[in-house]
């Protein structure tokens, strides 16, 4: 038996709450990796992110500045953390921070910190307001979408969209509006939190499915696991799901990866309408919070992602267990005030 290499990886999105970030699930995948051992450095924005206090999963946590502070502030902080920790890799998991990390990737690489992220072009092409152009370019069915900057535009879009329609934020949040008053209310609520534009999307009736996967940036599928969400919370998050076998969805995922040469993890949100046609509702450019189901079904996406970043050439997964389920649960940790004080005042724990 050979000694396994230990890789030091920083992971964000430790907010394993009712609308969870993927960080903790990603870390669980990494801890179970067969090909290497890990040390995990948590990167947090807030003092109450549960992952900070999960010492069996996260070895040490540092707070980092919000994406809205700009990349230079983020880079300074990461350089400080790197000086202390000598990171091998960073896995960012929040939509809102991805752009900043993509911009910094070359600088981080110079410091010896690997990432494995989509390109700016891939990231922008799949943005919600670019989805119609994306569908046309690559030949996917997508709902009609339009970005609006002004609440008054809700009146003029009536000619293009029928109610109900979906009102979405640039990064997160969405609501189904059945009339203009509801649409206005969602516009105000979502834009106050996530800024502009707001995306108005055609509502597609049908059954929702999701796929998580991993592309190697050359057009090859390293991993793809389709699921159906079984229980969805009032925040629109899955609380239970099951892996399924659907050739058409796997083909669609292959087509997505090969045509865009997708680099890194992703999640496809799909809707299958009455005629059995699949629509892509959204392409999330990062690993989803339910990724541990893919790990449990036999495709350790976080492990494969690290191998891609570290040049360890992972073999594409060829199989996964169908009918594996995940059921999410919440867990009350007991934390001493000293720990909270430590992360709140020094930004490190």
């Amino acid at each position: 038996m050979t000694d396994k290499k230990t890789i030091k990886i920083a992971v964000t999105a430790l907010n394993a709450i009712d609308s969870p970030g993927p960080g903790v699930s990603v870390i669980r995948g990494l801890r179970e990796a067969e090909s290497f051992d890990v040390q995990i450095i948590g990167l947090s924005y807030e003092s109450l992110e549960p992952g900070i206090y999960m010492h069996d999963l996260v070895d040490k946590t540092y707070q980092i500045p919000y994406p809205s502070s700009g990349t230079s502030a983020l880079f300074e902080r990461l350089r400080y953390i790197h000086e202390k920790e000598k990171l091998d890799m960073i896995i960012p998991n929040f939509d809102a921070e991805l752009f900043s990390f993509m911009k910094l990737a070359p600088e981080l690489d110079k410091l010896g910190i690997k990432t494995f992220l989509p390109t700016v072009k891939q990231y922008e092409e799949r943005e919600k307001f670019n989805l119609p152009a994306f569908g046309e370019k690559y030949g996917f069915n997508v709902p009609e979408s339009k970005a609006i900057h002004n609440i008054a535009d809700l009146y003029s879009i009536g000619s293009t969209f029928d109610y109900p329609l979906v009102v979405k934020g640039k990064f997160y949040d969405a609501g189904i509006a059945y009339n203009i008053d509801q649409a206005k209310s969602y516009f105000n609520k979502i834009s106050a939190k996530w800024g502009l534009p707001i995306i108005i999307q055609e509502f597609v009736h049908g059954t929702e499915f999701n796929v998580t996967g991993l592309g190697d940036g050359e057009g090859n599928t390293i991993s793809a696991v389709p699921i159906r969400k079984q229980y969805i919370t009032d925040k629109g998050k899955a609380w239970g799901g099951i892996s399924i076998s659907d050739k058409e969805m796997l083909d669609l995922t292959d087509q997505f990866i090969s045509s865009t040469k997708w680099r890194g993890g992703f999640e496809l949100e799909l809707m299958k309408n009455k005629e059995g046609k699949f629509f892509i509702l959204e392409i999330n450019p990062r690993i989803p919070a339910w990724v541990y189901l893919a790990v449990g079904a036999g495709q350790n996406i976080p492990e494969a992602l690290v191998k891609l970043a570290m040049g360890m050439n992972p073999k594409p997964f060829s199989d996964y267990a169908v009918g594996k389920m995940f059921i999410r649960y919440s867990w009350d940790m007991i934390v001493d005030l000293e720990e909270f004080q430590q992360i709140s005042t020094y930004g490190e724990l």
Binding site: L337, F340, Q341, S344, T345
Partner: peptide, 18 residues
Amino acid sequence: ISDSGFIFNPDTGESFSA
């Protein structure tokens, strides 16, 4: 009141920094 500038009010559970 701790030396680090962390203040905790046990009556309300609120914490502050100074």
